[in-house]
Amino acid sequence: MRRLGQFVEIIVGAAFLWSGIAKLLDPSAFLSAILTYEVFSYKVSVIASLGVPYLELCVGACLVFRVIIGGARLLAVVLLVLFIILLSQAAMRGLDVDCGCFGSSKKSSEAGFFWPIARDVIMLVGIGLGIVAGVNANGNREK
């Protein structure tokens, strides 16, 4: 169980790394994607366009290389919940958004909101599995 949890977390970490690198290659494209959500002001979006990719890189690297894992799990959960909320509100408002999940992509009215939300939920479950496996492993060690 512990090994499965670690494996799934490494996969999730790799996805975060990929996502962070894709966004860092073109922060302006990612900024455009954030603005399509019509939630944040321009200045907040500029900060997010440079901050979120590095946050994803750090979280991804920590999950893959198994360092400061508790903080990385916490931030991964916060990020994924935030992404799910942003995508859901855009879907409910019928916005024509660019997901921006892995850099700039197609507008979600064309590509659909289902897959980006489902992907985030799957990653959230992966982190949950890692947490449960970690807790179980610690419990067994204490016994």
């Binding site: 860092l24 290659l25 073109d26 922060p27 302006s28 900024l31 200045k43 500029v46 900060i47 366009s49 440079l50 901050g51 590095y54 946050l55 890189l57 750090c58 979280v59 920590c62 400061i68 894992i69 508790g70 903080g71 990385a72 799990r73 916490l74 931030l75 916060v78």
Partner: peptide, 30 residues
């Protein structure tokens, strides 16, 4: 402990973001 670790990651991220703002060739204008 997890919260403290998360704060460390956020600080590192913030520093990288500030450096990128000034050094990244494609950094958006404020």
């Amino acid at each position: 402990k997890s919260v403290r670790e998360a704060c460390v990651i956020i600080v590192v991220t913030g520093l990288c973001g500030v450096i990128a703002f000034f050094a990244h060739p494609k950094a958006p204008a404020f």
